[in-house]
Amino acid sequence: MLELRLVQGSLLKKVLEAIKDLVTDANFDCSATGFSLQAMDSSHVALVSLLLRSEGFEHYRCDRNISMGMNLNNMAKMLKCAGNDDIITLKADDGSDTVTFMFESPTQDKISDFEMKLMDVDSEHLGIPEAEYHAIVRMPSTEFARICKDLSSIGDTVVISVTKEGVKFSTSGDIGTANVVCRQNTTVDKPEDATIVEMNEPVSLTFALRYFNSFTKGTPLSNTVTISLSSELPVVVEYKIAEMGHLRFYLAPKIEE
């Protein structure tokens, strides 16, 4: 028996909107720790990792570890039927091949349930060890989204370089080149508007911009985004989910042949 009641149901709606274009089918894993997902895109270039900790749910019952295969587009369709202020409850019986999403309006005057068929999803789970990163950049998530969108109108790849000067995003294409430099800036009114560059070593890596643009669909989840870079590792783009966990995107770099 599984029963997860999420008062801030909009979080789950936002999570699905953020990942449904990158990943088609995925297994949601439910354990005492929380509700999680790990999935790669079809080309195995990017990986999504979601964690919603059990403590973040108003009610969390998970009698045994369970993995539920879902088509994310279909799940998003169902969650779109929930209001932004609705409480969302996920329910599944042991051995059932369906999951039920129950939506309650804040005033309890409208209660809906949507039952979705589960599916077998063949997925490879990767072990991601803790790593020391050469550089970690924290910046407003809207600013990062803006940069990715702007650069993708010029080129297909972005070079992200972190030096003591700050972080530089560069691209080039048929029509020309573009460079955006963000310097550390902590003298802001609100902490979420700050740009913080922590650098242990300078690092410069090249990535496909279209993946970054897909990751920025996580922007509504958090005011800030954290970008962790190391020369021998995929970049990690992380959106914290307040009080509950995180949505992380990992992207393998491009290298010169």
Binding site: M40, H44, V45, A46, L47, E124, L126, P129, A252, K254
Partner: peptide, 14 residues
């Protein structure tokens, strides 16, 4: 010409 690496080249199946 640049080569796109795969995520599975970095992380192993668990």
């Amino acid at each position: 010409q640049s080569l796109q690496l795969s995520i599975t080249e970095f992380y192993r199946s668990s």
